[in-house]
Amino acid sequence: MTTDPVPLLPRGTRLHQDRVRDTWVLLVPERALLLDEIGTAILQEVDGRSSLAAISCRLAERYGAPEPDVASDVREFLDGLVGQRLVDYQ
């Protein structure tokens, strides 16, 4: 695995907007996970082409936050999802 992997949602995993509750969920076979705004923003950037650094850079700019802090949080968040096989790194 490279130090700047490209995350992607595996087959069968998708983001879904629950309009009734005005929230986003990550749907995987037989499971659903509730996302907050930041988690949603991160996963909306996961397109299978953008590297972790590119995603972090865009989010840091959007939220006006220090890039190292954003990169650390994004990495920790996605690593956790990779550990649960909800996201893949390529």
């Binding site: 879904h16 629950d18 309009r19 009734v20 509750r21 969920v25 990550l26 499971r31 659903a32 996970l33 509730l34 996302l35 907050d36 705004e37 930041i38 988690g39 923003a41 991160i42 989010l59 840091a60 939220y63 006006g64 936050a65 802090d69 954003v70 949080d73 994004v74 920790e76 968040f77 956790g80 999802l81």
Partner: peptide
């Protein structure tokens, strides 16, 4: 909204 650590929660065994 300011940046903060993202949160993801399993939905308890709770509209498509």
């Amino acid at each position: 909204m300011a940046w903060k650590k993202p949160i993801i929660k399993n939905i308890a065994c709770m509209n498509m």
